Simulated scan of single mutants.
Amino acid sequence: MVIQKCPIWGVDCSVSNPYGTPDIYLVEGSHRAGGDFEITADAVSEIDGTTEDDDKARITSLLVEQWIKGVDVPRLTGNDVQWAKSRSRLPMLDRAERVLRLLVSRSSYLGDILDFIDPNDRKALALGRDTSGLDTSHFEHALAWSEAINVEELGHITNYLAQRGLIQKGREISNSEGYSVWGTDGLYSCVVDVSGYSLIEEIQTNLDSSQCFVAMWFDDSMDGVYENGIKPAIKEAGFSPYRIDREDFAGKIDDEIVAQIRRSRFLVADATHGEDGARGGVYYEAGFAHGLGLPVIFTCRNDMIDKVHFDTRQFNHIVWENLDDLREQLTNRIGSVLGDGPNIEG
């Protein structure tokens, strides 16, 4: 098999076979894919014929997850590609957090101005600038990290970051008609605000945490779900489960919930409930974790999935039938989203 372009996006890059095996390739310099990565022959076959940009964006997003976890050169397998194609698009808050994380990593100093140029965008060309000699890697990496399929999507995400005060406009650039091209047509110049740095530092601190906050219905009927399903799954993945109702603390419970979520690496939210209806606390805690940029893994017993609140139906839920099913699915999901936890024994 001879590969001459990026297997995902078909753009020019370097593809080599440095490992002495015909089944693994090293792809270097594909900015649209977000960076350098390895890919197996069966993954190439799975991707071959993929024409939908949505699918390509989800496959690319899987690579980004590995870079965020600290993997220098992630590897894509055939199973990875199949899973990426089947999953839902990332929630908007997660995509925005990724873009902010990228901007922070690319800023050399506080106040550094980052220019984003799309070499194929008509508005960029309307500026009268020769884009062929400009560094377009910021723009292409931002597309990859945000799971965006075009400049309009990226523009909406960056507008959201600006509205929250996490980034600011860098340079005022206008097109030939005098209209600013900074906005939903695409972000061309920005500066990360101090609040943006602070948010990423807070998220980064959580990356060192081994704690998983568990949000669920605290009813006696759910004790077995926790003890034989959720708790062992979290521990097998290398993390430590935390349930607020099983801990001693001084002060108000609301303050302790907020503090413990902030100390956690991620949150598991089980939407199973009784005849009294949905548990508002579960949705509040999941929403708060999302606002902090923490991964949230939703689970729900199969007979309750149709009753999940409409605000969270967009998220991919683990739908479980029994405790063994819950334990296996949750362990696998934690591993795929977060990798091995710090408590995994070598």
Rank of each mutant, 00 (worst) to 15 (best):
C6Y: 01
P7M: 13
W9D: 02
C13N: 10
C13A: 11
V15N: 13
V15W: 14
S16M: 01
G20W: 07
G20C: 06
T21D: 15
T21R: 12
T21P: 02
E28Q: 15
G29A: 04
G34C: 08
G35I: 06
T40M: 06
A41R: 07
E46F: 07
E46C: 00
T51A: 06
D53E: 14
K56L: 11
Q66S: 09
W67T: 09
G70M: 07
G70Q: 04
G70K: 14
V73R: 13
D80T: 10
R89A: 12
M92Y: 08
L93G: 01
D94G: 07
V104A: 14
R106A: 14
S108P: 02
S108G: 08
L110R: 10
D112K: 08
L114W: 06
L114V: 04
D115G: 04
F116W: 07
R122E: 15
R129S: 13
S132C: 08
G133K: 13
T136S: 04
F139R: 13
E140T: 15
W145D: 11
S146M: 01
E147F: 00
I149H: 05
G155K: 01
T158W: 03
N159G: 13
G165Q: 05
G170C: 06
R171S: 05
G178T: 00
W182K: 00
Y188H: 12
C190N: 03
D193N: 14
D193K: 11
L199W: 13
E202R: 14
I203G: 07
D208I: 09
S209V: 12
A215I: 07
M216Q: 09
M216W: 14
W217N: 05
D219V: 13
S221R: 15
S221K: 13
N228Q: 11
P232W: 12
K235S: 15
A237M: 02
F239D: 04
S240Q: 09
Y242C: 10
I244S: 00
I244E: 00
D245I: 02
R246S: 05
D248M: 01
A250G: 05
K252Y: 15
I253P: 09
D255N: 09
E256P: 01
E256A: 13
V268Q: 08
T272D: 11
H273M: 12
G274F: 08
R279I: 10
V282Q: 08
Y284R: 01
A286L: 07
A289R: 08
L292I: 01
V296K: 03
N302S: 11
D303W: 14
H309C: 03
T312H: 07
H317M: 04
V319M: 08
E328G: 01
N332W: 06
V337N: 00
V337C: 00
L338S: 11
G339W: 10
P342Q: 08
N343L: 15
I344G: 00
E345L: 10
